[in-house]
Amino acid sequence: MSLAGRLAGAVDTALDRTIAPGYSRVGYAVRSRLPGWPEDPEPGALAGRHVLVTGASSGLGTQTARELAALGAHVQLVVRDRAKGEAVRAGLAAELGEVFTLRTCDLGDLEAVARLADELAAEELPLAALVHNAGALPATRTESPQGHELSMALHVLAPVLLTERLLPHLAGQATRVVLVTSGGMYAQPLRDDDPEYLTGDYSGTTAYARSKRVQVELLPVLQRRWSGAGLHVYATHPGWADTPGVLESLPTFHKVTSPVLRDLHQGVDTTVWLSAVRPAPAGGSLWHDRRVRPVALTSKTRSTPGQVDRTWRWVCETLELPEEV
């Protein structure tokens, strides 16, 4: 590697490990100008293909849909609130044309997720990517219709179930699966002993981070499981992005950091890049700013294979899936 390449790598790593500079708009601005910044997807890279984006009615979800459509995709917008989703769909269509289909689904409800998967499979859409972006940060412990802690149901169980139910249809399509996670997961260890947050004083922020920790820890498991169907599995965290969710759920954080928060384009850049760039990067890893990142930064949050195995067993038992396929 050239000296310039080594220096660029050192700057990139320093930004990543110091958190605040790397997660802010400063980190994106610096990295995107360093030597070795990966090329953008080609114009029209998704022409003739469909992409599914959950949580598409605001913030990062809407921006992801916008940028994927700009690359030629027909975007399936999955929302919970149909009226809000229809307003977003109409706005996007006015910008980019009638290349958006609205679908309503409460992703916290596993029965609704199964129905959505069956609906999509019946239509046999050429799906280039599934972007699992939907998220929530409940202030108090909330259960899904099936009795699961809502953060875990929405961020882990729903994406796995939706992808699993679509798997026979996706075989051979080289589909990308992108889990939009959070840098907050770096603060939490994998709680394989209490995935439903049944013990201790409940914190919505902690529950959110724990569920995001599960997402990244399961990446190698999901890549092995789904690779036979030709899928590439990634997680990406957007850094500190200025979204309605951050403003609503973390108002103090938003107020303090607002001068350096990323705009929506910067927040979705790697999600869009992973969904469209050719050839597909190797799956099974966490990404941020178009680079693979470690899933743990300290020994306190580093998981053991046994913890990951027990967590995956809980997911399979909960969703009634075989552990191996």
Rank of each mutant, 00 (worst) to 15 (best):
L3M: 09
G5Q: 10
G9R: 03
D12C: 02
A14C: 03
A20M: 13
G22D: 00
R25D: 06
V26H: 06
A29H: 05
A29F: 02
V30L: 09
V30M: 04
V30C: 00
R33L: 05
P35S: 07
E39M: 07
E42M: 06
E42P: 00
G44K: 01
A47Y: 02
R49I: 04
V51W: 13
L52G: 10
V53Y: 11
A56E: 05
A56K: 11
S57Y: 01
G59A: 10
G59Q: 11
G61C: 10
A70T: 02
H74N: 12
V75I: 10
L77Q: 10
V78C: 09
V79T: 07
V79C: 12
A83K: 08
A83I: 00
A87T: 09
G91S: 04
A93M: 05
E98P: 09
G108E: 08
L110Y: 01
V113I: 01
E123H: 14
E123G: 12
E124A: 15
H132P: 10
T140G: 14
T140E: 15
R141Y: 07
T142D: 11
E143R: 13
P145N: 01
S151E: 14
S151Q: 15
M152D: 00
L154V: 12
L161K: 07
L162V: 08
T163C: 12
R165A: 10
L166H: 06
L167Y: 09
L167H: 11
A174M: 12
A174L: 13
S182D: 08
G184M: 15
A187F: 07
P189Y: 02
P195N: 08
E196D: 15
G204A: 12
G204W: 14
A207P: 08
K212Y: 10
V214H: 12
Q215D: 13
E217L: 02
E217G: 01
L218K: 04
L222S: 04
Q223P: 05
Q223R: 02
Q223L: 01
R224P: 02
R225C: 05
L231G: 14
T236N: 12
T236I: 09
G239C: 06
T243S: 11
V246T: 14
S258A: 15
H265N: 07
Q266E: 15
W273P: 10
A282D: 14
L286W: 08
R291N: 09
R293V: 12
R310V: 01
W312M: 04
